[in-house]
Amino acid sequence: MATTQQDINAWIKNTIDGNDVVLFMKGRKNMAQCGFSQRIDAVLQHLGINYKDVNVLEDASIRDGIKAYTNWPTIPQLYVKGEFIGGCDIVMEMFQSGELHKLIHEKGVPHTNHGTHA
């Protein structure tokens, strides 16, 4: 995978640009190894979003790289359509207020749970 800082940034950018929704997390989809990652995973699955998971525990260069790339010191990190949305606290707040559902709807992200929009 990525080796130099430049390669790492390019890999991150490609991943973020190439997928509607990307979660940089500890563990994998359905198998989070951290409570904060698990909570975002659960929210995305609840909304029926087929997101791209990146397990930072598999590659220390990605783990450090995404922190620098986003200028955000913690994992998990959620990107939607190339835009950094936040970590666990922000995503949970946005989910509870209905803003997250509204955001993915407005950005045209495919999702199967249409429920009600705030």
Binding site: N71, W72, P73, T74, G86
Partner: peptide, 27 residues
Amino acid sequence: SRVERHRMVNTALADELAGAVHALAIS
């Protein structure tokens, strides 16, 4: 914005987050 607010907190606590503090929930 939410992200801006969290960045302000993260910046203030940068040393802690780079060191012993493993998890920080922010409201």
